[in-house]
């Protein structure tokens, strides 16, 4: 046994201590990065945030006034994205988990979902411009931007829904089928309601991704600073507003203020998702 007699440079004890130190440092670094981002943005941005910043329209291209239209624009874009990605994503997930035969076509669909998730957002933005804005004639609008965002979050919605559906216990499905329910009745009335918390969490996390997305919407949603009156009108989303404020040197303070609001929205969304998940996990814990 040559390994046993090999001379060690460091004692196992030292190696172990060094390893756990490195692992601990990695974990701490992750949290530190998050805290520095939040800290910097809030520190630089908090000064300009007040009620009028949140509820006023921008003046002088955003150098003064507030960011209300951009908040509204962001919420509209995200709403269109969720309302379209939700049903399509859940539908695809139900098909893939419950109906799809185990064959080449199914594998191709699953692979396609993976690929869609991997497409750079700027490419989706460009495609959205060519297809939605120009070819379908939706113009720069909430509809174009929202649908382009949907292309981006759809794969996440499909995956989250698939995971949620797979965790519904086979016992429940058998219970329903044994009563004479058809497959669709079982899915509609037992599987989907049980999977709903997981699906909701997935969709909300998708929203978190969509809300901060800039590349997808800059070529599709437009850049108007007016309040939109329908989904066929253009809006400027919050991250894009922030990008313009900073890149064109309009106002650093306003840019950081916008960034802090955006960050607040994302954190709120993630917090909501986690809360919903916890609530339902605690409830389903009653089973045993």
């Amino acid at each position: 046994m040559s390994a046993a007699v090999r001379t060690r440079i460091f004692s196992p004890d030292t190696t172990d201590r060094v390893a756990s130190l490195l692992l601990w440092a990695s974990a701490i670094a992750t949290v530190l990065i998050l805290l520095s981002i939040i800290g910097t943005i809030v520190y630089r941005g908090i000064g300009v945030i007040d009620i009028s910043f949140l509820l006023d329209s921008p003046r002088m291209s955003g150098a003064e006034g507030g960011i209300f239209p951009a908040i509204v624009g962001t919420l509209c874009l995200v709403a269109v994205a969720i309302l379209t990605a939700g049903p399509v994503g859940v539908g695809a997930a139900v098909y893939l988990t419950e109906y799809a035969p185990d064959n080449g076509v199914t594998h191709m669909i699953t692979f396609g979902v993976e690929c869609l998730a991997g497409i750079p957002s700027i490419v989706i933005g460009l495609f959205g411009y060519a297809f939605l804005v120009v070819y379908l004639g939706f113009g720069f609008s909430i509809l174009s931007g929202g649908l382009a965002l949907m292309f981006m979050i759809l794969p996440w919605t499909v995956r989250a829904s698939e995971e949620a559906i797979k965790t519904v216990s086979g016992d429940l499905k058998e219970g329903s089928v044994a009563l004479g329910a058809t497959k669709w009745q079982t899915i509609r009335q037992v599987v989907l309601p049980s999977a709903l918390p997981g699906i909701t969490t997935g969709v909300i996390l998708g929203t978190g991704k969509a809300i901060g997305e800039t590349a997808v919407i800059m070529y599709t949603a437009g850049s108007s600073l007016l309040l939109p009156e329908s989904i066929f009108e253009p809006v400027r989303a919050l991250p894009y507003h922030l990008y313009i404020l900073a890149s064109e040197g309009i106002s650093d303070d306003m840019a950081y203020g916008s960034a802090a609001v955006l960050l607040g929205m994302v954190l709120l969304i993630n917090f909501t998702a986690v809360t919903i998940q916890r609530y339902y996990q605690a409830r389903s814990g009653l089973r045993h």
């Binding site: 429940l172 219970g175 009563l179 049980s194 389903s284």
Partner: peptide, 16 residues
């Protein structure tokens, strides 16, 4: 058939 031949399982499986 399954309506006429019911089944009760090993683990209680009430719907949520």
């Amino acid at each position: 058939l399954r309506k006429r031949i019911g089944m009760v399982f090993q683990k209680p499986n009430p719907f949520p």
